[in-house]
Nucleic acid binder design. Structure first.
Lengths: 241, 241
DNA sequence: ACCTGAACACCGTTCAAGT
DNA sequence: ACCTGAACACCGTTCAAGT
């Protein structure tokens, strides 16, 4: 016993031999992302990760301090890949929308990581640094005071994250909002949910499938219009004649 | 061996004896919520839960099919406690705000459960049934078509959930947005984050602490105003003269 | 420096058995 | 019906040892 255990190619202890790629933080995170993307967060364990890398579980600890570090490293990797279409010359409304789409795109391309992306405060802070510059650039042009710019930016990010989380945790594409929900509404005692009933019955078959793309656009529209309104009010207050 | 193990009062196997409260789904969820509220999600295990109840770990499985069921049961319990101040006669804007505050209040009162609340799709669906009636009632008065009402409601809920998640994962009260973030912005190479720098430098000491209450109001304001705008546009489109 | 083996203190859950 | 004990197949991480 000792050698040739399973598919691991590595034989002895000690340094990697010439020709073998050494273990690095990057290689570890790559392998971890493959596991999470392919099989979900539940499949990620230090032991499984080590097995995929052909390495002893403890070797990982020389490059990352623990499992938490692996997970937040993953979030960092994913967010650092955020790219926006250049939208320099466009009006701020378009630039805000471009940011929102890029942010949603990141979460959507790694649905199994969505929960960590959205909840990892450190990663969000990282995202502000690396990705939110265009958002702040756009919002500066509204003329709102700095404090309100920050709050508007946060509101937009909160919406995008809330939306993306819902999107990530639902079966691919649109999901049927009509059938199950309407059935449950209709079995409600007496009618203690009259408005819900009216709205969803009016939707009927036509609106049975929820369209995430259209829903995102409506939400974005509401936010951008809302920002326009408070910006206009602020300006009117400054020179009220 | 056999009897008197630790603090568990229960002695023999079989049915609970007279005078002992029997194990129920409700008692299990109560105990689980106490653990999560007090020590966080990481402290919740079937074995720990059983110990707190003075019961064999396996006994729980007779009332709930597994750990996942315990967690989503928890989310259900918490959401079923959502209560709104009655706001029947008020304008729809006020009623939308009341709903948002109630929803935020639920998440805020169980910060350690925030992640599950926000991500548990089944619970969200449950929340729609039990709690969103007032929101739909309010939004009906905007005159928007049913499909847009659903999307506006979802956008509001997405914002509230995104906001609440950020709030729950940050140290109590406001957190300092200025010090750490500004320090990192200022160490950025060259100046590839000019807008961020301008905004956060203008905030300075005054805005160093993030005020969650004020931030929530601004976000709500943006959303309500935005809904007003798209509702007005829809009405204008219907009778364009 | 970098990697390993064995061990520790846990998990959730199945299954057969008790009353 | 309701509860239990032992066992199975896992975890993350510490620690001392190897090269």
């Amino acid at each position: 016993m000792g050698n040739g255990k399973g598919e691991a190619r590595r034989r002895g202890a000690g340094r990697p031999r010439a020709g073998q790629e050494p273990l690095t933080r990057e290689r570890i995170l790559d392998a971890a992302l493959r596991i999470v993307d392919g099989e979900g967060m539940g499949a990620l364990s230090m032991r499984r990760l080590a097995a995929d890398l052909g390495v002893n579980p403890m070797s990982i600890y020389h490059h990352l301090p623990g499992k938490d570090a692996v997970v937040s490293g993953l979030v960092g990797v994913v967010f650092s890949g955020m790219r926006m279409l250049p939208s320099e010359g466009l009006p701020w409304q378009e630039r805000v929308r471009a940011y929102a789409h890029a942010h949603r795109g990141i979460v959507r391309s790694h649905p199994n990581l969505a929960l960590q992306i959205v909840s990892n405060a450190a990663a969000v802070s990282e995202a502000v640094l690396s990705g939110a510059e265009p958002l702040y650039g756009a919002l500066e042009e509204t003329g709102l005071p700095p404090k309100t710019i920050v709050r508007a930016a946060d509101s937009l990010v909160d919406f995008v994250q809330g939306f993306s989380l819902g999107e990530a945790s639902n079966p691919s594409g649109g999901f049927d909002i009509g059938s199950e929900l309407l059935a449950r509404i209709e079995t409600q005692p007496a009618d203690n949910v009259p408005a819900l009933r009216r709205v969803f019955e009016a939707l009927g078959e036509e609106g049975a499938r929820y369209d995430f793309d259209a829903g995102f656009e409506v939400g974005l529209d509401i936010l951008v219009r809302g920002i326009e309104v408070i910006a206009a009010e602020g300006a009117r207050r400054e020179r009220p004649g």
